[in-house]
Design a protein around this nucleic acid. Structure first.
Lengths: 205, 205
DNA sequence: CCTACCGATCGGTAGG
DNA sequence: CCTACCGATCGGTAGG
C-alpha cells in the first residue's frame, strides 16, 4: 500500500507530459534488460510509482508504449547525429563523427531506446512498423550520403549500401557485448572503440 | 482431435531421439520468428504433431529446450567451420572461408539455431549460459587465430580482438536484414555478401 | 490516476 | 506420449 501521491501546491513536479516521458524512459530501460515480452506493464508502472492499470491512461496498450520508445530513440538519434556532423569537413572526418555518435546513442547513460528498437523489432506489430521505418530511413540516409562519398574517394572498398548495413551492424552489435563503466583500466572507451571501427573499414594510405 | 500416431511395424520413422531432434529444430524456427517469450510450448508441440504437455517428456522445461537449440547451433557451427577451413592456405583465404561459412550458418535453410542464440540470449537463465559460452569461446578462438595472423600481416588495421567482435557483429547483424530466396535478380547471394564483407575490412594492396 | 476485477493464456504436472 | 487439469500471471477495462 504505497503512499498517496501528494497534490503539488505549486510548480508541479510531474505534469502529464512528464509522466508520459517517465513511462517511456523506464520502459526503455526495462525492455532493454528483460525484453518486451519479459517486461510486464506492472513492472513499468511500479518503477515510476504508479499502480498496475495506470499506464493505460497514457498509452492505449503495451505495443504503443513500445512504439513510443522506438520513436523517441530515433528522434533523439537524428537530433544528436545532425548536431554532431560538421558538413564543412571531409567525408572521412564526418564518418568518424557518425561512428562516434552512434556508439554514444547505444551506450551513453539513459540511451536504451535504440537498443530496444534493434532487439525487440519483431515484437512491434506491422501497423506500427511503418512509422518507425520512416524515421529509420532518414537516419540511414544521413549515413549513406557520407558512405557514398567515401566510396567515390576509394576509402571504402565495399558497395556503399552494403557497407552501411555492415558498419552499422558492427556498431549495433556492440549492444550485446560492450559494457560501459570500465572496471579494469584495460576496457576501451567509446572514443577508442570508434577509432578502431574507423581503422577497420577505412582504407587510408 | 488429431489422429492417433500409428505404431510403426518396422523401421521406426521417429525414434525418441528423432522426436527430440524434431522439437529442437522446430523450436529453433519458431523462436527465431517470434522470440522465445513469444513462442509457446503449445506452438512447438503442435508443430511437430504432439499435444501440449508432451514436450516435457523430452525436456524438463522450456529453458532447457532453448539451451538445446543454442547448443545444437554451436555444435553444428563448429563442425561446419572446422570442415570449411583449409589450414594450409594463407590467412586471407581462410578468412574468406570463415566469413562465407558464417553467413551460411545464419542464412542457409534450417539454420535457425545461431540466430536464436544471438537474439534470445537474455532469455537464457545464467546457469545455462556457462555451457553455451564454453562452446562459443571455442568458435571465437578459431576466428581469433586467423585474425591475429591477418593483423600481423598488416591486412587488418584494427586491434585483432575488437576486429573479431566487429566483423562477427557485422555478419551477425545480417540476421536482421538479409532475406534469402531472392525475389528480385538484384539481391545479393551469400557468396557476394561474403566477398563484400572481406573487401570492407581487408586492407589488401 | 487508483481500485477492483476479468478473461485468456501459459508453463508445467499427475496419472496413466 | 496423451488426457485433464491447475495455479499463476498478465494485458486490459469499468467506474470512479
Amino acid at each position: 500500500m504505497p503512499a498517496k501521491p501528494k497534490t503539488p501546491l505549486s510548480a508541479p513536479v510531474s505534469s502529464p507530459d512528464n509522466r508520459r516521458a517517465d513511462l517511456i524512459r523506464v520502459a526503455a530501460r526495462l525492455f532493454r534488460e528483460k525484453g518486451f515480452d519479459g517486461t510486464t506493464i506492472r513492472d513499468i508502472a511500479h518503477a515510476v510509482g504508479m499502480r498496475s492499470g495506470s499506464p493505460f491512461y497514457h498509452f492505449a496498450n503495451k505495443h504503443e508504449l513500445l512504439m513510443a520508445v522506438m520513436e523517441e530513440g530515433l528522434r533523439l538519434g537524428l537530433e544528436r547525429t545532425q548536431g554532431a556532423i560538421d558538413t564543412s569537413l571531409p567525408a572521412a572526418d564526418r564518418f568518424r563523427q557518425l561512428v562516434r555518435t552512434h556508439y554514444g546513442i547505444l551506450h551513453d547513460t539513459g540511451s536504451d531506446f535504440i537498443p530496444v528498437m534493434l532487439y525487440d523489432w519483431r515484437s512491434l506489430p506491422v501497423q506500427y512498423k511503418r512509422r518507425i521505418i520512416e524515421l529509420k530511413d532518414r537516419y540511414d540516409a544521413i549515413w549513406q550520403r557520407t558512405l557514398d562519398e567515401l566510396h567515390a574517394q576509394g576509402l571504402l572498398r565495399a558497395d556503399a549500401k552494403l557497407a552501411r548495413l555492415m558498419i552499422l551492424g558492427a556498431i549495433n552489435f556492440s549492444a550485446t557485448w560492450y559494457r560501459a563503466k570500465p572496471r579494469s583500466a584495460k576496457r576501451v572507451d567509446l572514443d577508442e572503440l570508434a577509432a578502431q571501427t574507423v581503422a577497420l573499414v577505412l582504407h587510408t594510405a
